[in-house]
C-alpha cells in the first residue's frame, strides 16, 4: 500500500494542549534493516521532540517501555518491527487501563500499589546465621519463572479483571510476586500472606483467560502462579466462599 514507506499511527496526548487524545499518522522510509519498535520511536522523536515514552535499558530487562503494539502489549525494545507490522502499518498506544500522563506514558501508581500490597519482600524473623541461609537447588528452582519479573505491567494491563478492579484485584504481576515469596523456602509468613489474599477480589477475580501469559515479554506464567496460590488458599481455608458477583 505504501511501497517502501512505513506508516506509524501513534497515540498522542499532551494534557497541556489537547482536550482529547488522538492518533497521529507518521509516514517514514522503511528502515533498511529490521529495527526494534524502540528504535522506531527514537527515529520519530528525532523529527518530533514532543513525543514522550519511557525507556532505559533498551534490552528487555528494566521494564520501562511496555506499550500496546498493534493491539498487543509488549516491550518496545525487544519487539522487532517485522514481528508486528501489518500491511506496512504499526499502531502504538499506551498500556491499556491505566490513566495516561502523556503520549505513551501511563500513570502506574495503581500497579505499584498492588505490588506493595503483597509485601514483596522476604519475611523471616528468625535470627539470621553468620553466613547465608541454606537453600537446596531444588528449593531454589521453585523461584525460577517467578523472580524474573521486570514489573513492566504488560500482563496486568492486558487483564480485564485488572481494568475493572485495579484497586481490589491484585493483578497478574503482583500475584506472580506474591507466589514468588510463598514459594521461597526461606519465607516464613505463608499463613499471613494467604490470609491477606483470601478475600473475593485479590486473587479470585482471575478467571484464567491467560492474557497475561500471552503477553509476558519474559515468557513467565502468572496464570500458573495464580493457580498455585488458589490451591494453597483452598488447602489453607476450606470454608472460603467464592462469589463471582461484584
Amino acid at each position: 500500500m505504501f511501497g517502501n514507506k512505513l506508516q506509524v499511527n501513534l497515540y498522542r496526548y499532551n494534557p497541556e494542549e489537547d482536550k482529547f487524545p488522538y492518533m497521529k499518522k507518521y509516514v517514514i522510509e522503511k528502515p533498511k534493516r529490521d529495527i526494534m519498535i524502540l528504535d522506531l520511536l527514537h527515529l520519530l522523536k528525532e523529527e518530533d521532540q514532543s513525543i514522550s515514552y519511557r525507556r532505559s535499558c533498551r534490552e528487555g530487562v528494566c521494564g520501562s517501555d511496555g506499550m500496546n503494539i498493534n493491539g498487543k502489549n509488549g516491550l518496545a525494545c525487544i519487539t522487532p518491527i517485522s514481528s508486528v507490522v501489518k500491511r506496512n502499518k504499526i499502531e502504538l498506544r499506551p498500556l491499556p487501563g491505566l490513566p495516561v500522563i502523556r503520549d505513551l506514558v501511563v500513570d502506574m501508581t495503581e500497579f505499584y500499589a498492588q505490588y506493595e500490597k503483597i509485601k514483596p519482600f522476604l519475611q523471616n524473623e528468625t535470627t539470621a546465621p553468620e553466613q547465608e541461609r541454606l537453600q537446596s537447588p531444588e528449593e531454589r528452582d521453585k523461584l525460577d519463572g517467578l523472580y524474573e519479573c521486570i514489573l513492566c505491567a504488560c500482563c496486568s494491563t492486558s487483564c480485564p479483571s485488572f481494568w475493572w478492579n485495579p484497586d481490589k484485584f491484585v493483578g497478574p504481576a503482583a500475584l506472580l510476586q506474591a507466589y514468588r515469596f510463598l514459594a521461597d523456602s526461606r519465607d516464613l509468613k505463608t499463613e499471613e500472606r494467604l490470609e491477606a489474599l483470601s478475600d473475593p477480589f485479590s486473587v479470585y477475580r482471575c478467571h484464567g483467560i491467560m492474557n497475561c501469559v500471552n503477553v509476558c515479554p519474559k515468557g513467565l506464567n502468572p496464570n500458573k502462579a495464580i493457580g498455585e496460590i488458589k490451591s494453597m488458599l483452598h488447602k489453607n481455608k476450606k470454608d472460603i466462599i467464592v462469589t463471582d458477583g461484584v
Binding site: 519482600f121 553468620e130 553466613q131 547465608e132 541454606l134 531454589r140 523461584l143 519465607d187
Partner: peptide, 20 residues
Amino acid sequence: AVFELEHMGLPFSRFENGRI
C-alpha cells in the same frame, strides 16, 4: 554485605550443599 543480601531474599543460585 553479600550475606545480608541473601538474608534480604536475593534469590542466589545454589550448590548442592545449599550454599550460594
